[in-house]
Design a protein around this nucleic acid. Structure first.
Lengths: 128, 128
DNA sequence: TATATTAATGCGATTATATCGCATTAATCG
DNA sequence: CGATTAATGCGATATAATCGCATTAATATA
């Protein structure tokens, strides 16, 4: 919890979390909106998603299409920090999935890496 | 050369290439435009950049800010294909550089990776 | 060199993603 | 139950990138 502001439980948040927790893929705000039966304003979706990211509940990936995608943060380890991993964007079924593939890198001294945004693009095993 | 359409040499293309070849960083269309003394239309910049990417002269990175950045393709090897590498976006000086760090991954059978888009985000050595 | 062909450009309109301001609604607490 | 204020809906806004179309100009050809 980076932000200590009090959060309230709302149907919108529940719905968003419900959609994402039952998905193995990272989803766009629009895709999430479409999966929710009740009407939710676009701005609200974005605010909810951004807040969940701030709170470490979700993580965000920006794909090479320039769009944001959101997925649950499953801590692959007992560690506090969620593991930085690759994502795969299938150009055929147009989905983005979190790969069980950690991002490893060795970078010159002096650099301070705070975040990573890594996407592999191609055809997934279901579409190949 | 994926596209075999005939290309013509124009001052715009020369200017764009000149700017990028003298830069160690990947640049946004807007930044490139600002570096060029003569007036060039925005749409033209985009078209020129896209064509250079098609022709393998430039490569494109989409950063986590959702914007496109372009840089020269320097073949790190004698191989035909340019080496897929990480990029670094410094949140302080707001630049994106090509790192001499190849992207390595092992992915489950069946996946077909056609491209990668990998960005590390943080503070570069000059700003740290 | 003059002319024809068509790639490249400029301009305006358009699409799409994402955010912001503000009034209203509703979750939570005492 | 009433007060507080987080959350929402709505409209406006910002920005990136593309598209259509008429015009310009680079290159090829006579």
């Amino acid at each position: 919890m980076l932000n200590d502001m009090k959060r309230r439980n709302t149907p919108t948040k529940q719905a968003v979390l419900s959609v994402l927790s039952s998905s193995t893929k990272a989803m766009s705000p629009d895709a999430i909106k479409k999966k929710i039966d009740v009407s939710i304003d676009r701005a609200t979706i974005y605010r909810v998603l951004n807040r969940f990211c701030d709170d470490g509940v979700l993580h965000r990936v920006v794909a090479d299409d320039g769009k944001q995608y959101f997925a649950m943060c499953q801590k692959c380890d007992e560690n506090e920090k969620p593991l930085q991993h690759f994502h795969f964007r299938c150009t055929h079924c147009e989905t983005i999935e979190c790969l069980p593939l950690p991002v490893n890198y060795t970078i010159a001294k002096g650099y301070e890496v705070k975040n990573v945004n890594c996407v592999l693009i191609g055809v997934c095993k279901d579409c190949a």
